[in-house]
Simulated scan of single mutants.
Amino acid sequence: MTILIGTTPRRTFDDSRRWIAEGTALLTDGIDRLGPADPSTGSGHRFDGDSQLPGWTRKHLIGHVAANADALGNLVSWAETGAEKRMYASPEQRNADIEEAATRPADELRAWYLRGAEELDEAMDRLTPEQWEHEVITAQLVTRKASDVPWMRAREVFVHAVDLGVGITFADMPEDFLLALADDIRTKRALSDDDLRGVTGPLPGVAAWLAGRPHGMADAPELGPWL
């Protein structure tokens, strides 16, 4: 399968809101699979075990996703009130907060993640159509409309559900989301038709490859990390 820019259906705002709900449910299911290792074998998915992201445990990952909900909530607040509110105080503070989150008890992390997801959803529900058109600035210092926030969150919860390393794969994601994700990443990576020549495979594999995750396609050139 080859993904061509402009040939996939354009995602809508309602799509992104729906994908947040679906991705959050998938990630929550993954978190609910975590627990202490079997003391007799050391097996089992553990909160403090390694995620699929280099250098991060699952606690780092869950803390990052929880903090992301709070950070995107800052952008929603900016759109609602007109008072500038950046996602993070600084890149250094963001990284320090993730490291601190990795030291928290599992129950506290899970509660923070669930609370943040609920509060972000409630905050988005409050915005008017006019407020969604307000401009905000992302952590990458890119100016975007607030209406892009739901898509930003949908990507986070779906892709990091895979990164949790509990058996969730890109094949567990909705096809319409995978098409939008593949198109979005290809655009951001500025991949040409020549770059994609010979890259064929099922949609989940193509999306995983574009996202720099394990994909199982032997002939696809390796890409750097994304998200």
Results as ranks from 00 to 15, higher is better:
Leu127Gly: 04
Ala211Gln: 04
Glu119Arg: 14
Leu227Ile: 15
Pro129Ala: 11
Asp195Lys: 12
Gly224Cys: 13
Asp184Tyr: 11
Asp193Lys: 13
Leu179Phe: 08
Glu122Val: 14
Asp176Gly: 09
Asp194Phe: 03
Glu118Arg: 15
Ala101Gln: 03
Thr103Pro: 01
Leu178Asn: 06
Thr169Ser: 12
Leu164Gly: 02
Phe170Thr: 09
Asp172Asn: 09
Gly212Tyr: 08
Thr138Leu: 09
Met217Arg: 03
Ser90Thr: 10
Glu175Pro: 04
Arg213Gln: 05
Lys188Ser: 13
Ser192Asp: 11
Ala207Phe: 03
Asp148His: 13
Asp97Ile: 08
Ala182Trp: 04
Val162Gly: 02
Ala190Ser: 15
Arg115Ile: 00
Val199Glu: 02
Phe158Gly: 05
Thr187Leu: 15
Gly165Leu: 07
Glu119Phe: 06
Leu164Ala: 01
Leu120Asn: 01
Met152Ser: 10
Arg126Lys: 15
Pro150Gly: 06
Met173Lys: 06
Asp184Val: 10
Ala154Glu: 04
Ala190Val: 13
Ile185Asp: 01
Phe158Ser: 04
Leu181His: 08
Leu210Gln: 00
His160Thr: 02
Gln131Ile: 05
His215Thr: 03
Asp121Gln: 10
Trp132Glu: 08
Phe170His: 07
Trp226Gly: 05
Ile98Val: 15
Val206Asn: 03
Val162Tyr: 03
Met173Cys: 08
Asp194Arg: 12
Glu92Ile: 01
Asp163Gln: 05
Val199Tyr: 02
Ala208Asn: 05
Ile168Glu: 01
Lys188Arg: 15
Ala123Pro: 09
Phe170Met: 14
Leu191Val: 05
Leu109Lys: 03
Trp226Thr: 12
Asp121Phe: 05
Gly167Thr: 01
Asp183His: 02
Asp194His: 11
Leu181Gln: 08
Leu181Gly: 00
Leu223Tyr: 02
Leu114Ala: 13
Asp193Ile: 11
Glu108Trp: 02
Lys188Asn: 15
Leu179Gln: 14
Asp97Phe: 11
Pro105Leu: 09
Gly201Asn: 07
Met217Gln: 11
Ala171Ile: 07
Val206Gln: 08
Arg153Ser: 05
Ala180Leu: 08
Arg197Met: 14
Thr187Gly: 14
Ala139His: 12
Gln131Arg: 10
Trp132Ala: 09
Thr187Tyr: 13
Pro150Glu: 01
Leu114Asp: 09
Arg144Gln: 14
Thr200Arg: 12
Leu109His: 00
Asp195Arg: 10
Ala111Ile: 05
Ala218Ile: 07
Glu222Met: 12
Arg110Ser: 11
Leu210Arg: 01
Pro174Ile: 12
Asp195Ser: 11
Lys188Gly: 12
Ala190Asn: 15
Glu130Cys: 08
Leu141Asp: 15
Arg186Gln: 09
Glu99Phe: 00
Ser192Cys: 08
Pro174Tyr: 09
